[in-house]
């Protein structure tokens, strides 16, 4: 009888372990999605890191080879054109002592497989005047290419400065 009880207990433990394994497996996609959210969110952090340090090379690591960027009614196609845009952009000029940041509530991320969207608003703060120098919105399409999330399309516009 004792052997029978031990056998039943072992079967029960096996069933629980198998069930737990199935449970862990079912939570897999959620974990993947969270990882994707984290990596897309890292684009926004890297963007502001690059802008604050005036590091165009770092900025260009965020862009896909055939990406487009539409800013102030003009569209720049390809990484070369986009690099030229940022080399001329105000935040990357040495005379502008700007720090860039984004309020967390102005960041929106969606993920659908290997494609997603990223929206954030950049607040460039002039450290000399302690005021917001400019505020622009960046609406982007992102895509996972070779395991990395990169910007494929950017449309920038003015923002309303309200949530």
């Amino acid at each position: 009888m004792r052997k029978l009880l031990v056998t039943v207990a072992l079967i029960g433990v096996g069933v629980l372990i198998a069930g737990q394994g199935a449970w862990s497996k079912s939570s897999g996609p959620s974990a993947q999605k969270l990882a994707d959210f984290y990596r897309i969110d890292s684009i926004e952090k890297t963007w502001h890191k690059a802008a604050s340090r005036k590091d165009v090379d770092l900025m260009m690591t965020l862009w896909a080879p055939n990406a487009t960027a539409t800013i102030a009614g003009q569209t720049y196609r390809g990484k070369k054109a986009i690099r030229q845009l940022f080399e001329k952009a105000a935040p990357f000029q040495l005379q502008n002592h700007w720090e860039s940041d984004t309020p967390a509530y102005k960041i929106r991320i969606t993920v659908n497989g290997d494609r997603g969207t990223l929206y954030f608003e950049c607040h460039y703060i002039d450290v000399d005047t302690q005021k917001v120098a400019i505020a622009v919105g960046a609406d982007q399409d992102v895509r996972k290419i070779n395991g990395r999330w990169l910007i494929t399309k950017l449309i920038s516009s003015s923002v309303t400065l309200k949530p």
Binding site: T70, I71, V136, D139, V159
Partner: peptide, 27 residues
């Protein structure tokens, strides 16, 4: 809404966008 915002944003990007692009004056 995104289409509308993008189209209008292309035309009326706002002063800050031009400042960002460092293209001198706004359109």
């Amino acid at each position: 809404a995104t289409i509308v915002r993008d189209i209008i944003g292309l035309c009326a990007g706002g002063t800050d966008v031009f400042k960002f692009a460092n293209r001198g004056k706004a359109t």
